[in-house]
Design a protein around this nucleic acid. Structure first.
Lengths: 345, 345
DNA sequence: ATGAAAGCGCTAACAC
DNA sequence: GTGTTAGCGCTTTCAT
């Protein structure tokens, strides 16, 4: 609130009406004379009046702001989703507050408190952990919350996620179609929702295809970061008889694995290397070795999330709690670093 | 503002003190008896009181919120910078509001209006265009604004940018050291700040090295998007005698150019291809052909920006308007898709 | 159709 | 050290 800024009081004075009338004009109330409306509008323009949303919020008990809780921001998935959410929400008069938890559950709790104090009208949360207990807050009783990307335990609410198992299974089908049987899995620590889902998709998918899972080919250590992908492919190649192909659980692992291949494998080894991975980002065209990718529908996730939230904000509680599961888009990369699709045993 | 939430009034009642005393305890005023302080704190805990920041903001004329205006969110540069800014600001009690202009100058103006109405205490803007006239707003008179990434015309304020010319010149030196003389430039439309600066860095740098700029080797069309990089390298290779190496002005162009090379050049052609480019992102290790990259100091840009803003918010106007120019980090990629550094004529 | 006035929850004089 | 009170800018009854 800037000192000396023009308020409805100034406008009222200038237009020769009461502040109530100014407020009515500002809020497009019908019951106001055309003349006075015009006079008020003229005064608004002349004075360059700009509404004080804070005062309005205090009075009407609604801030028209939505808090977004993310585990991190430096992540293509979140930013793309946030961008889409922001677009839809802005078109409906809402502003967005964002806060990163830096992967720390305690920081998520602090950020939540901040948003509560700021009286956000709604919340979108990409959970940092599994735990959802802290969302059971009295102040949040009437605040719609939609969870994205991961599922929360102990807190029931609307959720928008990618169909992780479907994605992995489709990737698997592609590889199996090419004739692969010795299929490895490069993933992450199963305490993470997406890591677990993608792992389970792999296990189920292999089973459905009638293929044997070789424990030595399954890597589920680490946080699915770039270095983990590097290390895991390294470990795979330390084996006497490594897999002929790999399912990779996300983009970072994929970059890491590709880096290992480029730096440490012989060109003979690389010539038969085949990957299929989750995520499809802007640099996908330069990812050698990838035959298939499962690209998350980032834009749709954002739009869907915003629309569910908007619906709840309007008081529509139908289908609560609603879970929207979006299938990723399966891409067949017809350029694979020069390696033509072929059949392996 | 949630109906029926607990206010300082409830706390006062419970603790048997006045609301002023509650407020004092909440704000850590010294002048309050230890006993009463304890009683108030107990009441706060029991009732689960949470401050209403909106009411506080209205009273003290400060929202402790900072608006971030970006041309887009789905961009590694902005994500990283926003994350760093958010961390520093959050540690100082500020929340951040973000809005993407979607590359539209009119949307940027709308977003600015929204932030003004929300009474943000400060503004960080990564301008969508050159034009800064709309920041001359009466309501913004006492609102610190720091501009990042690009410079604004017609509006003087604190600015944090990358030293684009330095970065390009260093890349050029690297290439010249390898013996290159026929150096191409893949950039973008000069109406963009970074496009122009990087282009000028190229022209100056070539001059300083005593090298001739061949107009046919300079590409400055488009918005520096992936497709542009693809097309520009394509055009270069349509020439009878293309450059032996290329300076590439950003990450998207780099991906595009690399894609063209992978898809359309012979392995003989690729074997001598050398790039040097601006930006150094997570997928840098898999960018073949790149000998040098100029990585922007994303984290530092964010921290520096937040700190200047914080300083202004404290009323410190020293060195205004301040321009911080951060030199990018020059990376020598010792793995280049197997191509050893060598000398070309 | 318009105005007067209460009050959202909080902070900060100002008294005592 | 603590209480009383005014008021931040706005919306919204309730009168007229």
């Amino acid at each position: 609130m800037r000192v000396g800024s023009v308020t409805i009081k100034d406008v009222a004075l200038k237009a020769g009406v009461s502040i109530a009338t100014v407020s009515r004009v500002l809020n497009n109330a019908e019951s106001v004379n055309d003349d006075t409306r015009a006079r008020v509008k003229a005064a608004v323009d002349e004075l360059g009046y700009q509404r004080n949303e804070v005062a309005r919020a205090l009075k009407v008990r609604a801030t028209r702001s939505i808090g977004i809780l993310a585990p991190e921001l430096t992540n293509f998935f979140f930013m793309a989703v946030v961008e889409a959410i922001g677009r839809v929400l802005a078109a409906n008069g809402y502003s967005i507050l964002v806060a990163s938890a830096d992967g720390l559950i305690d920081q998520e709790k602090i950020n939540l408190q901040t948003f509560i104090e700021r009286n956000v009208d709604g919340l979108i949360v990409a959970p940092t952990g599994f735990e959802g207990d802290h969302f059971h807050n009295r102040a949040l009783k009437n605040t719609p919350i939609v969870v994205i990307d991961r599922q929360l335990e102990g807190f029931e609410t609307d959720t928008v996620i990618t169909d992780n198992r479907y994605g992995i299974k489709e990737l698997l089908k592609g590889l199996a179609n090419e004739g692969h049987r010795r299929i490895g899995f490069i993933g992450g620590d199963l305490t993470f929702f997406t890591a677990k889902e993608r792992y389970l998709g792999f296990i189920d998918g292999m089973d459905e295809l009638g293929l044997e899972v070789d424990e030595a080919f399954v890597f589920t250590e680490g946080l699915m970061l770039q270095g983990d992908g590097y290390e895991q492919l390294k470990k795979a190649f330390e084996q006497a008889n490594p897999p002929t192909t790999y399912i990779i659980a996300n983009d970072s692992l994929h970059i890491g694995a590709t880096t290992f291949a480029l730096q440490n494998l012989t060109s003979a080894q690389r010539s038969t290397l085949v990957f299929a991975s989750f995520d499809h980002l802007s640099y996908a065209p330069i990812l050698r070795y990838a035959h298939y990718t499962a690209g998350q529908r980032l834009h749709e996730i954002g739009v869907e999330t915003a629309e569910i939230l908007l619906k709840r904000l309007k008081g529509d509680r139908s289908d609560f709690p609603q879970t929207v599961m979006l299938r990723p888009e399966i891409n067949v990369l017809d350029f694979n670093g020069g390696v033509p699709f072929s059949h392996y045993q």
